[in-house]
Amino acid sequence: MKMRSSVAVAGIAVLALFGTACGKDGSPEAKTPAGSTGGSQGAPGAPGGAAPELPTYTPKTGVALTGSKTFDAAKSRGKLVVGAKEDQPFLGSKDPATGKVSGFDIEIAKMIAADLGFGPDKIEFKAIASTNRENALVNGDIDYYVGTYSITDKRKQQVSFAGPYYIAGQSLLVRKNETAITGKDTIKGKTVCSAKGSTPLQNLQTNFPDTTTRVFDTYSLCVESLLSNQVDAVSTDDAILKGYAAKDPKALKVVGEPFTVENYGVGLNKDDSVFRNAVSDALDAHEKSGDWKKAYDATLGLSGSAAPAIPALVRY
């Protein structure tokens, strides 16, 4: 019965693509309230049962950055072009039904934009292949990049960073009812999943030889395997894991202290120190004003994990 109706749905869906839109309006119901709309459903970790709302930003007026090529280009373009991820829930995620991106990284991007004088409607988010990130910054395809981008010395040779705005570290995502896994010392003999070619995976394979690793193409496949009991945990940066947990807090949780350190920064063109200072100022202002905390609570915070300390900015 179940099968027959779903086959019918598949047929309809395919047909609908070619014919006039005969589908239901709107978009499928989200598992957790989508922040900005301020849904009425209660989310765990939110006192009083009301879902935390995203902060709003007032774009500054009359901003002028003398000597900043990036800013001048954006100004004459009339909008900012920001590189972001689109497949990481509650960090940088594109809703297929609306085409809008949302998440913690996106909020960081909006904060910065506001202080540069650009409202949310004046930002164009652009997906960038990971091999092309440095490239895109160097030749000005994007004005800045916000997407779980770790500050490393190697990258600093080509680009510069404002931040860190978040200190992430490798952690573990488990099913809500999991009791055996509480941190990195309890994964012996367990099956842990990570994504191909990633640093967390290499860390697992070299430092946790008694743990079975399962490798998938994307973290969403890992999460699906976790939900269907095929693996015991998923391991990568806690920010990414919190994003998945925040989407499905009834089924997932992040456990244990992070056991590596990744400093997420805003990627910038190396030669534009005026712009870098302005971005740092913007981060500083919004961290102090409480926007950072608000943005966290309305995104990654929905996972039930408390906000970590806001890292000190490193200016150079």
Partner: peptide
């Protein structure tokens, strides 16, 4: 596929919405 829940209606539901159809159509 059935055992792993691939035919559950929850997995096919999103494709009934015009927004998702439009997204696929834009890709096409």
């Amino acid at each position: 596929f059935n055992d792993t829940g691939q035919f559950e209606s929850a997995k096919w539901d999103p494709f009934q919405y015009s927004g998702v159809q439009q997204f696929i159509f834009d890709g096409l």
